[in-house]
Structures are given as structure tokens and as C-alpha cells.
């Protein structure tokens, strides 16, 4: 077996694996910055036409305007986030509304088990409904004390910190409750349907 070529003196970006006192999932490294990743142009959504909807297997669909949405009971969140491209960022601070409050505003049909998050610009991602409940997820419109920048998903994005960050749909516009799991943008091309970083569920079949 031939030795792999190594570039003399090349170290690459600082990457500390597992230096978060058990807070860094396997295969990840810590980052101080906040990398911007995207699959397409940044949507420009005027706030006076922005809306958030919950549709699908609910007794009646629900819709909020920006005014109504940001008037919902909201709170600060301090969470760690992990991207499947291997960076993890600790102690990120957001402000927004819990999915428990959003889903609590509709009557969910008992056969609803999965959710597809839809975003302005066409991105979608799917996850089990149970991963959105019990204070595990929120929709944020502020990051680090300021309005969420478009590059990072503003006006508002879904944040599900216990799953890989591609599940935290930027530019979120609504949730669709479903009985079957419907693979989203990346899940339909090899990424995992659930995406638990602690089990390194990066790709389907992991």
C-alpha cells in the first residue's frame, strides 16, 4: 500500500476535536466563526409579505404574519450547533419562539409523525415530529442579540440544535405535518433522514 502524500508543513484550519468537555460530537471540530453554507441564492423576503404557516395533517392550517409571529411568546436560547461539514459551534445565542408554542396553536392529527420544513427559495428538510417537541426546537429571528442576517437564514430560520444543522432550515416559511417521511433537499440525495450528530447520522445508511 502506497503512503499517502502529505504536504510538507500544512496544518490547515485550527481544528480541535473533542475539546468541548464532551460537547463536541464525534468527527466534528470546533469553530469560532460562523461559516455560511447555502445551496442557492439568499432569498429576499419583505417583512410585509413574510408569513409562517403550519399545514398538512392538522385540523385547520395556521398562518402568522411577521407582526403576529414576532408577537408570540418568545425567549432566548443558548445552544450548540453542529454542521455535517464537520464544524461545531458552542454557545450560540438566539431569540425566537419554541416549536411547542407554534405546534400548540394547531390541532395535530394523531397520524402525523413527520414534518417537512419549507423555506423561501425552495429548500426543504424532513424530520420526525418528536424531534421538534419538548423544547428541542425553535424558530429564531435574532442571533447574538441582532436581527438574523439573511446569509444566516433571516428573517427567520428553524433551529433544531440536537440534529445536524442542515435540518435547521434557513428562511423557513412553514411546516407541513405528514404521516410518511418525505426526504427533503439533501435527504433525497444521500443525507440521513434524521441526522443525529451524536450517532454520526450524516448519510442515509449510517
Amino acid at each position: 500500500m502506497t503512503d499517502r502524500f502529505v504536504s510538507r508543513g500544512f496544518v490547515g484550519r485550527a481544528r480541535e476535536a473533542g475539546d468541548g468537555a464532551g460537547r463536541v460530537p464525534p468527527g466534528q471540530y470546533l469553530t469560532e466563526g460562523f461559516p455560511v453554507l447555502s445551496a442557492g441564492p439568499t432569498p429576499q423576503v419583505p417583512l410585509d409579505s413574510w408569513e409562517f404557516t403550519i399545514t398538512g395533517l392538522v385540523k385547520a392550517p395556521m398562518r402568522w404574519s411577521w407582526q403576529e409571529f414576532t408577537a408570540l411568546p418568545s425567549r432566548d436560547w443558548l445552544v450548540d450547533i453542529s454542521c455535517v461539514t464537520k464544524w461545531t459551534k458552542l454557545d450560540t445565542s438566539w431569540h425566537g419562539v419554541s416549536l411547542d408554542d407554534l405546534l400548540g396553536a394547531v390541532e395535530i392529527e394523531p397520524r402525523a409523525r413527520f414534518v417537512t420544513a419549507h423555506s423561501y427559495g425552495g429548500y426543504t428538510t424532513n424530520l420526525p415530529l418528536t424531534d421538534l417537541l419538548n423544547n428541542q426546537a425553535f424558530v429564531a429571528w435574532q442571533y447574538d442579540g441582532s436581527p438574523l442576517e439573511p446569509a444566516h437564514g433571516g428573517p427567520a430560520r428553524l433551529v433544531v440544535p440536537h440534529l445536524y444543522l442542515w435540518k435547521s432550515a434557513k428562511w423557513v416559511r412553514g411546516l407541513q405535518l405528514r404521516e410518511e417521511d418525505e426526504p427533503g433537499f439533501w435527504e433525497s440525495l444521500g443525507y440521513h433522514n434524521r441526522g443525529d450528530p451524536w450517532r454520526e447520522e450524516r448519510y442515509s445508511g449510517d
Partner: peptide, 11 residues
Amino acid sequence: AWTQGPGITLR
């Protein structure tokens, strides 16, 4: 091309 992401997207 959007190359920074879980995958490459060409539009």
C-alpha cells in the same frame, strides 16, 4: 455554483 454546503448545487 454554490459549493459551500452539504453538497454542490448548480443552478
